[in-house]
C-alpha cells in the first residue's frame, strides 16, 4: 500500500514541477471549441447539433497530447527498469500511472467541458449527459491511450504512431458518449449509452493494467 502511495506521490511531485504539461490539454480544448464556434456562422443554431461530436473529439485529442509522454521520461532515465524490478506488481505501477494521467488530464477536461458545452448551445439536460458521459469515457481514453503509449514507449516516432493506434480503438467510447448527449438533446432517455460506457470502463479498468504491464515489460526487455 505504501508503494502505491509512493508512486502517486511521485506523480504529484512531477506534476507540480512541470505545470505546462497538464495546463496544455485544457487550453487546447478551449481553443479547439472556440475555433469551431468561430468557424461556423455567428450564432448558428446548428452548432448545437454538432456540439456532442465537437466536444468529444476535442476531449479525445486533448487527452492524447499528454499520453505520449506518460511512460517516455521514465523509460529514458531508467526509472521504468527499476519499476519492473520492484516488488510491486507491474500492473499496479501501470494502474497508478493511468490513474494519475486521468486525474491530471481527464478530470480537468471533464470539468471544463460543461461550460464549453453551454457555449456551443447545449441545454442543461444535454450538459448533464455530456459530463456524465465524459466522467465514464475519459478514464477509458486514459486507459486505452496509456496501453498504446506503453506499446510505443521505446520508439522514435511514437508521436505519430500513437494517435493512429488509439483512435480506432476508442471509436465505441466516442459513439456512446456523443450518443448520450444527442439522446438528451432529443429528449430521449440517456441511461442506455451511459450503461454501455460504464461497461466499457469496467472492461478497461480490469484488463488494461495487465496488457499495459505486458507492453511495458516488452519495452524494457
Amino acid at each position: 500500500m505504501s508503494a502505491v502511495a509512493a508512486l502517486l506521490r511521485r506523480e504529484a511531485w512531477l506534476a507540480a514541477r512541470s505545470r505546462s504539461d497538464w495546463l496544455m490539454p485544457p487550453f487546447f480544448l478551449v481553443v479547439v471549441v472556440t475555433l469551431f464556434g468561430l468557424g461556423a456562422e455567428p450564432n448558428d443554431p446548428r452548432l448545437a447539433r454538432f456540439a456532442p461530436a465537437i466536444l468529444w473529439v476535442a476531449n479525445l485529442l486533448a487527452a492524447l497530447l499528454t499520453l505520449e509522454r506518460l511512460f517516455r521520461a521514465d523509460h529514458e532515465d531508467g526509472t521504468l527498469e527499476q519499476m519492473v524490478l520492484s516488488p510491486l506488481p507491474l500492473y499496479l505501477v501501470a494502474a497508478c500511472k493511468l490513474l494519475s494521467h486521468w486525474l491530471l488530464t481527464g478530470l480537468p477536461l471533464v470539468l471544463l467541458s460543461a461550460p464549453l458545452g453551454a457555449m456551443l448551445g447545449l441545454d442543461t439536460a444535454a450538459v448533464v449527459a455530456l459530463v456524465a458521459g465524459l466522467v465514464l469515457g475519459t478514464p477509458c481514453i486514459s486507459a486505452v491511450g496509456g496501453f498504446v503509449a506503453a506499446l510505443t514507449v521505446g520508439l522514435p516516432r511514437a508521436g505519430l504512431l500513437l494517435p493512429v493506434l488509439v483512435l480506432p480503438l476508442i471509436v465505441p467510447v466516442v459513439i456512446f458518449g456523443a450518443g448520450a448527449v444527442r439522446s438528451a438533446q432529443q429528449g430521449l432517455p440517456v441511461d442506455a449509452p451511459l450503461y454501455f460506457l460504464a461497461a466499457i470502463l469496467a472492461v478497461c479498468v480490469t484488463l488494461v493494467p495487465w496488457v499495459c504491464s505486458a507492453a511495458l515489460r516488452n519495452a524494457v526487455d
Binding site: 486505452v144 496501453f147 498504446v148 506499446l151 493506434l165 480506432p168 480503438l169 471509436v171 465505441p172 459513439i175 456512446f176 450518443g179 449509452p193 454501455f196 466499457i200 472492461v203 484488463l207 496488457v211 505486458a214 507492453a215 516488452n218
Partner: peptide, 19 residues
C-alpha cells in the same frame, strides 16, 4: 498485444456502430 486488444474491440465497435 495490439492484435489481442483489437480483437476484443472489434465486436464492441460493431455493436456500437449498430446502436
Amino acid at each position: 498485444l495490439l492484435a489481442i486488444v483489437g480483437v476484443v474491440n472489434v465486436p464492441i465497435v460493431k455493436y456500437s456502430v449498430e446502436w
